[in-house]
Design a protein around this nucleic acid. Structure first.
Lengths: 205, 205
DNA sequence: TTATTATGACTGACCAGTCAGTCATTTAAG
DNA sequence: CTTAAATGACTGACTGGTCAGTCATAATAA
């Protein structure tokens, strides 16, 4: 009845995206393995051919997030443009990732929960992801200050606020989908970067 | 064996704060009614004398949060000072609440999860809490613009970013307690408000 | 080409552990 | 003694994970 298997890796991918879809809908806590199996159109037992446990499914979702995040960061460290501009596109890229993968984004809240207390397994190392983000942003802020585009003295705290502005908009979108996430990227750039402009510099875009 | 208890309301409060403490430690999903009872120093069954269900405990935690939130908002609408200043103290007060009740703050992530999909019960109306916050901030932004302290045209999107900056810093603190939450209030004010200063106005403190 | 065997992806009934919620009984205040 | 709070053993439902068996396909033999 069931056609013989597909590529092992492809099947893993199918199950993972089914899982992400269901997690986004029902939340991780309320999602049974059977729900994931149903979404993927396979039997419950088959899920265990690709994933060792329910928690491993969430860990895989985290891995996917970390991957996207690494892409954004890697792209941002490409040289060439002034640091302020690279910073602006980093922010826009980060928001674009969220907007492009709404389901994965909706799972974020479960990822945060697992980051704080790791279910049965070891907690996800969410802290590192944010530390890297902050590090990259802080680095660009400092460079931009060196280049005279931002005021001197900017550093970690300002980076935390910039990263925070993105995550915080995400939270509000999660609670109220009426919030337009994509359009907010520009506002974040505008508010945060013009707030850090070098003294006497332009205050508007 | 057990001293007879009279004050129903005080007992409810004891249980709730015990619950918040355990939720903060283990997370809501991993917390059993028995854990809450143990933390409160009573028997499992006694919890049900004050709360109808496990979900009601989380709902009560949400109510407490909403209460704190309402306090902050109420205090912010007190007249007298220029809108920019009231805005700054609103931000500081919001952060202060988070810093003053770390356990309740740590439960936030479970509250967000319950806000999106309501477990067994109806989802918590988290959206309204944020809408009110945004509304209050947007209002103060507009007033401040009218008073000439901020540039004209500020509104909802900017309010979302300001509220987001706070929530986002909170997220980072949750994932990495090394982030100093209290000190960040000032940075949020500084970055966001100076970013919205009227053209030609001062850019630094 | 056709028959036979080997493979392993797939299935779903099953089990064992967990836990929310109940309630008969106990304790003690008034 | 009466009444209400407090208890914790108990129940019933639920679900993560297992595994013996199925069967489509691939491999090999004839």
């Amino acid at each position: 009845m069931a056609p013989k298997r597909v590529d092992r890796e492809a099947r893993r991918e199918e199950i993972l995206s089914a899982a992400v879809r269901v997690f986004a809908r029902r939340g991780f806590a309320a999602t049974r393995i059977e729900d994931v199996a149903a979404e993927a159109g396979i039997a419950k037992g088959s899920v265990y051919l690709s994933f060792g446990s329910r928690d491993e499914l969430l860990a895989a979702a985290f891995a996917r997030l970390a991957e996207r995040s690494a892409d954004v960061l890697a792209h941002a460290s490409a040289q060439g443009a002034p640091a302020v501009e690279r910073l602006a596109s980093l922010v826009r890229a980060a928001v674009a990732v969220l907007a492009d993968e709404p389901d994965l984004t909706r799972v974020m809240v479960d990822l945060w929960a697992a980051g704080r207390h790791g279910g049965a397994a070891a907690p996800l190392d969410m802290a590192s992801v944010y530390r890297e983000y902050r590090g990259a942003v802080a680095d660009l802020l400092r460079r931009a200050a060196d280049e005279g585009d931002l005021r001197p003295g900017v550093g970690e705290p300002e980076a935390t606020v910039v990263v925070g502005a993105i995550e915080g908009c995400l939270v509000q979108w999660l609670m109220d989908p009426g919030v337009r996430l994509d359009g907010l990227a520009g506002t974040v750039v505008e508010v945060c970067l013009s707030g850090l402009r070098a003294e006497g510099g332009p205050t508007g875009p």
